[in-house]
Design a protein around this nucleic acid. Structure first.
Lengths: 111, 111
DNA sequence: ATTATATTTAACCATATGGTTAAGTATTGA
DNA sequence: TCAATACTTAACCATATGGTTAAATATAAT
């Protein structure tokens, strides 16, 4: 369990990977399309996608020569449970959530 | 903001640091006492505590020669908001939370 | 059959991370 | 004043991480 949490939080600790997750909120994507907005080589993105897969945050399904990347909605669950179990911080208010969701949308539109 | 989230998730990606946070749920602790249950040198723990401080997850207050470590309850907030904003995963059920809180208690008793 | 597309694998590099030991700095107690 | 306590800082080391380019693989299109 600790190893799994290590992997999860570690996967989330990189901004590129978090952006990829946000992009995948919109829709499933091919690896090349995931790579497009980033100023980074395809192999680099491929590595990031592997890390996200291993952490259980996405799944990849190859159809023909295209590898489709798809958000794994329950992937964040364990990390979320771990954090909420602290129960020490104020429950994030709705406005914070809304502001952040907006910013996700801004981001996906920009790219 | 991305840099802050990097720091936060990165701080949480290490099992030693997560255990320290759980220990601090019980009470504030001196550095030496934090170090005690771990099979690791004091400087190593000191580094971990710095990382937790920089991530905003704990605060340290020196009184005399003792540096008291204290959980920063709102420290997890930003990371939590980020994760909840995905809103894609099932809300963690109460039983999961309770089971995990129990396991935290077991852990602090063991040490 | 050949070429283009989509992606991964391999080899490499610089920097970051997590540990160590040894030495340094305050503060407290005898 | 001298020694013990509670740390932190410095220097170092091995391995991990995040990037690169070049080559390999598999499928699709011509």
């Amino acid at each position: 369990m600790q190893a799994k949490l290590n992997e999860l939080f570690s996967a989330l600790s990189d901004a590129t990977r978090r952006e990829i997750l946000i992009m995948l909120l919109e829709d499933d994507m091919a690896v090349t399309d995931v790579a497009h907005p980033f100023d980074m080589s395809l192999p680099a993105i491929s590595k990031h996608l592997n890390i996200l897969s291993n952490a259980g945050l996405i799944t990849q399904e190859r159809r023909g020569r295209v590898n489709w990347c798809k958000l794994e909605p329950d992937g964040l669950r364990d990390a979320s449970v771990w954090m909420l179990s602290f129960g020490q911080f104020d429950i994030p208010d709705i406005e914070d959530l809304e502001r952040l969701i907006e910013s996700h949308i801004d981001l996906t539109q920009k790219n």
